[in-house]
Write a protein that binds this DNA or RNA. Structure first.
Lengths: 222, 222
DNA sequence: TTTATTGCTGTGGTTTTCCGCAAGGGTTTG
DNA sequence: CAAACCCTTGCGGAAAACCACAGCAATAAA
């Protein structure tokens, strides 16, 4: 017993080709694919309408939509829309992204059934994921699993996120203060903003604020 | 007439699978692949040694070498090593990267024969590239071509690069000055460093130095 | 050769950031 | 209830960054 109808959402054709070939290789009858989010969602709706719904969606997270006006522009949006359309659809995320916050969000909030990182053995891990998901179990590949286990991950809360965002956008400390007061975000005194920046420098072990901005940016936290 | 022996260097297996399948589909007899740079280089050396050299290398740029001690860690290094080993080897770069400076460097300095961006139609472009390269012509896919045409691209020269690197690593202006004096890099007065940062803020249209660091980092120039 | 231009550097003064101290408010703990 | 603690906020001084001005040297143009 196995899945018989699967949809692959992945924009780069080389990857798409590889994934589809792999799935067919696993003996899945119907493997269809889409290179755009909107397209994928449409297929899901149509299949449901004619009474032949997909059982599984294998989706990437980032899509190239530079040349399109699209409603759905990311894997997250696609998954959310798909789950609304067809709540019983199983979802496996297959992506290069290995950021704890993103993986956590997908598993906890979007309730995806598995997360597999593209990599040296991505396809093998994808195979394992499909088996587990078919058995109604959750699955994360070794890379994702280890990322999820990491303690003390340098993560930013909403406030710090906003603060650093403004800093990176060219706001001075007093301008940030004014902006926060205007938007009723507290704490908003110049002194507190200063203190928070200082604390962030501590936790990130940055000598200067420039370095802090650099670190946070290159860690993908902004 | 076409290539008969090709090596694919690409770490993620899903991509690798797709590329190899495509090449075989094109009627190329021998398509081999490697997931590590060192491995690829080794294969090239061996093939040359037994008198059956590869005619073409299709290589990615970024490789995952987190779990290895490897001599070659990037596509650039692999290509350089490969060309030293076998100067007549044709090289096609197949990568997601679409940064002008990087593409330019590969074409001009490393003399690669084609540059193709992974994307919606990457495999088709790869096919075109192979044809052109077989005819001893250079090729760049539409995406790469348009990127190369862009004027006024914000690029950094060596000095600015070093300056910003130090800034992002937590050096203060006077420390940068000392560092430059120590390494005989000119100009190195605090005042000049100040002026250069100020000029960079102008050209990048950044209000603060924090923003400058942020912009340069997220543009991938550091 | 003279003139103009450009870039590097120093000086002095302003602005911004940084940091220690302390007062006040709120919550937790004994 | 009081003591302890945490966080915000303001203040003042030090450090760093920023900026306008000017001198100087090297180079380019007349």
């Amino acid at each position: 017993m196995k899945f018989t109808k699967v949809l692959v959402a992945e924009d780069t054709d080389s990857n798409n080709f590889g994934i589809v070939a792999k799935l067919k290789n696993l003996g899945i009858d119907t493997v269809e694919h889409a290179q755009y989010c909107d397209n994928a969602h449409l297929k899901i709706k149509k299949a449901l309408l004619v009474g032949e719904p997909y059982q599984l969606l294998v989706s990437d997270l980032s899509f190239d939509n530079s040349n399109r006006k699209s409603k759905l522009s990311s894997g997250e949006e696609l998954i959310e829309a798909a789950k609304t359309t067809q709540p019983n659809l199983k979802v496996i995320v297959f992506s290069v992204i290995d950021k704890q916050t993103i993986i956590k969000n997908l598993l906890d909030n979007l309730k995806v059934n598995a997360y597999v990182c593209k990599g040296l053995n991505g396809l093998n891990e994808l195979e394992k994921a499909i088996e587990k998901v078919y058995q109604n179990q959750q699955f994360t590949c070794p890379v994702a699993t280890s990322v999820l286990k990491q303690q003390n991950v340098l993560a930013l809360n909403k406030y710090e996120q906003q603060l650093l965002q403004l800093l990176a956008t060219g706001y001075k400390q007093n301008e940030i203060s004014e902006h926060f007061k205007l938007h009723k975000i507290a704490p908003n005194s110049v002194r507190s903003i200063e203190a928070h920046i200082s604390k962030l420098k501590d936790t990130f072990d940055a000598k200067t604020t420039h370095q802090l901005v650099y670190m946070v940016t290159s860690l993908g936290l902004l």
